[in-house]
């Protein structure tokens, strides 16, 4: 009786040790690699926009293809902040000792995607800010296993995330 109980415990332990543990470790590594690939792709994408001054549909599609190649589904958030120096120049013109503030106008993902679908490209100018944030929306194997074993609650937690932003360095050419 006592022996068989120990055997069952040993088999369960062996199963965890020999199967679950390596699987968890591997799936975690897999997520790390995905995370890295996504972060690299995001940085490259944002860098390209920053150094060319334009966001093209081609580049955007390619970026989406690269990140989805990791086998996960993603939510991509884009943001363009357009620099407007007009309020500043109005202040200066009225009172020469003041510079006045610059204002940024924001454009978000849905507006940007509409513009891209319509024109194929968005031109930016020097001083604008471009930001991209991407999070996975599916549950990765590592997340499922972790939720199961550690009882981590909440399914909306993301595991893979890429984020980059920066000031556009050049004026994009119109065509």
């Amino acid at each position: 009786m006592g022996d068989s109980l120990i055997t069952i415990v040993a088999i369960a332990l062996a199963a965890i040790l020999m199967f679950i543990f390596p699987l968890m470790s591997l799936s975690e590594r897999n997520d790390d690699i995905s995370q890295l690939a996504v972060q690299t792709a995001t940085t490259e994408f944002v860098d390209k926009v920053k150094t060319t001054g334009k966001l093209t549909l081609d580049d955007y599609q390619q970026y989406i293809n690269t990140i989805t190649a990791t086998g996960n589904s993603f939510q991509v958030e884009l943001q363009i902040q357009q620099l407007d120096e007009n309020p500043g120049s109005k202040t200066t013109q009225a009172e020469q000792t003041k510079i006045g503030e610059n204002v940024y106008y924001n454009k978000y993902t849905s507006q940007i995607e509409t513009d891209l679908a319509k024109n194929g490209r968005i031109t930016l100018k020097e001083g604008d800010i471009f930001a991209t944030t991407v999070k996975n929306t599916n549950l990765t194997i590592a997340q499922i296993l972790r939720n199961f074993f550690f009882m981590v609650s909440g399914n909306d937690q993301y595991e893979i995330m890429g984020q980059d932003a920066g000031v556009v360095a050049v004026n994009g050419s119109p065509r």
């Binding site: 001054g53 357009q82 120096e85 120049s89 109005k90 200066t92 100018k125």
Partner: peptide, 22 residues
């Protein structure tokens, strides 16, 4: 500070369709 191009006291501002939104 001042701008070379301007009509005192109103400044000449950048157009929102081309210069600002590029």
């Amino acid at each position: 500070y001042f701008y070379l191009q301007g009509k005192n006291p109103i400044p000449i501002t950048a157009c929102y369709s081309c210069v600002v939104s590029a």
